[in-house]
Computed example of a mutant assay.
Amino acid sequence: MAEPLRIAYSPCPNDTFVFHAWAHGLVPGAAAPEVTFADIDITNGLAERGELDVLKISYGQLPWVLDEYALLPCGGALGRGCGPLVLTREPGAELTGRRVAVPSERSTAYLLFRLWAAKAVPGGFGEIVVLPFHEIMPAVRDGRVDAGLVIHEARFTYQQYGLHKLADMGEAWERDTGLPIPLGAIVARRSLGAERLRELAGTIRTSVELAWQDPSASRPYVLAHAQEMDPDVADQHIALYVNEFTADLGEAGCAAVRGLLTRAAAEGLVPEVDPEALAF
């Protein structure tokens, strides 16, 4: 019997919702994988080291892993109105020369932030500090950094920390491009072979469809890993990040990914990517 595939994704509600059926052996004909839970900065590193078979990573990490991993057309996170936020203690704060906390310098959030800042912060920052995403809002609140780039459920909870939204990276991206916001990608090891990759994409797509058909089935799994998140916030999180692009990137999703990496490469933030390497 073949060894189960090894997959890593975050404990965030959108990922546990999407992968619940597959992780519990509920997808017909597909064995349950061996799951590792890890924040995005860790999964980005796992992909760069080639340590697992399937991973949820940042689209910003793709240029460094495409030789070994293929982008799958489903299971990831894209959308509208769901971009990262820049938060400060005071409304309208100035960022030139300031310390800014980010969740990763290989994250999509960071690429969107840098593309925005090229116009909005012409004087540049003083220092970029990488912190786990759940530590960023306390760091801003406590004055250890001047601003923070936040992702995930922070969009719904930052007011609880007394913080203010300085800018929405997703709004800036959508205004400039008209495209959805590419956030998290699902990649799989190319050595699995083309047929196995197609089967795997089908498995993930079925897992998404099963989650939508019966949302209550995944609820205990989602809440068990949601890091004490309020159930209503978890529901908001799923509603925002699990959408038509999760089931299939489609033409608009693919254009968004190409657009992000092309713009980021032009700014020297990532290596240039051959569009053929993104094809599935």
Score class of each variant (00 low, 15 high):
Val233Gly: 04
Asn243Ile: 10
Glu199Trp: 11
Gly202His: 02
Gly202Arg: 03
Ile204Asp: 05
Arg205Ile: 07
Tyr221Pro: 03
Glu228Gly: 12
Leu223Glu: 06
Glu195Lys: 12
Pro215His: 01
Asp235Ile: 10
Ala188Gly: 09
Ile238Gln: 00
Val222Cys: 00
Glu199Ser: 13
Ala211Glu: 03
Tyr221Ile: 05
Ser191His: 05
Thr206Glu: 15
Glu209Asp: 10
Ala239Leu: 13
Arg205Lys: 12
Val222Asn: 07
Arg189Ile: 04
Pro220Lys: 14
Pro231Ala: 06
Gln213Arg: 14
Val187Gly: 04
His237Leu: 02
Asp235Thr: 12
Ser207Leu: 06
Ala194Pro: 08
Arg190Gln: 13
Glu244Met: 11
Tyr241Leu: 14
Leu192Glu: 02
Leu223Val: 10
Gly202Cys: 07
Leu200Met: 11
Leu240Ile: 06
Ser218Val: 03
Ile204Met: 01
Ser216Ala: 15
Arg190His: 13
Gly202Asn: 03
Ser207Thr: 05
Leu240Arg: 15
Asp232Leu: 15
Val208Asp: 05
Ser216Asn: 12
Trp212Lys: 11
Val233Leu: 08
Ala217Thr: 15
Asn243Lys: 11
Arg189Met: 05
Met229Tyr: 00
His225Leu: 11
Ala188Asn: 02
Pro220Gln: 11
Leu223Ala: 03
Gly193Met: 08
Leu200Tyr: 12
Asp235His: 08
Met229Val: 00
Arg219Ala: 13
Ile186Lys: 01
Ile186Gly: 02
Thr203Met: 06
Pro231Val: 06
Glu244Ile: 03
Glu195Tyr: 03
Ser218Leu: 01
Val242Ile: 13
Glu228Thr: 12
Ala201Phe: 12
Ala211Pro: 07
Val208Trp: 12
Leu210Phe: 00
His225Trp: 01
Leu197Asn: 01
Pro220Ser: 09
Arg196Glu: 14
Ala226Val: 03
Val242Cys: 03
Thr206Cys: 12
Ser207Ala: 14
Ser218Tyr: 01
Thr206Ile: 04
Thr203His: 10
Glu195Pro: 04
Tyr241Ser: 06
Arg189Trp: 02
Gly202Trp: 01
Val222Trp: 00
Gly193Ala: 12
Thr206Lys: 13
Ala224Lys: 12
Val242Asp: 01
Asn243Met: 09
Ala194Leu: 11
Ala234Gly: 06
Tyr241Glu: 12
Pro220Leu: 04
Ser191Trp: 04
Gly193His: 08
Leu200Ser: 06
Ala239Asn: 14
Tyr221Phe: 15
Gly202Ser: 02
His237Phe: 15
Leu210Val: 02
Ala234Gln: 01
Asn243Cys: 05
Glu209Val: 10
Val233Ala: 10
Ala201Met: 09
Gln227Cys: 13
Arg205Asp: 04
His225Gln: 09
Ser218Pro: 07
Ser207Tyr: 00
Val187Gln: 04
Ala226Lys: 08
Pro215Val: 02
Gln213Phe: 01
Ala224Leu: 10
Pro231Thr: 07
Ile204Trp: 04
Pro215Asn: 05
Gln213His: 11
Ser218Trp: 03
Arg219Met: 10
Tyr241Asp: 07
Arg219His: 04
Ala226Ser: 15
Val187Leu: 10
Val233Pro: 05
Ile186His: 02
Arg189Tyr: 07
Leu240Gln: 10
Val233Cys: 08
Glu228His: 14
His225Val: 11
Glu209Ser: 12
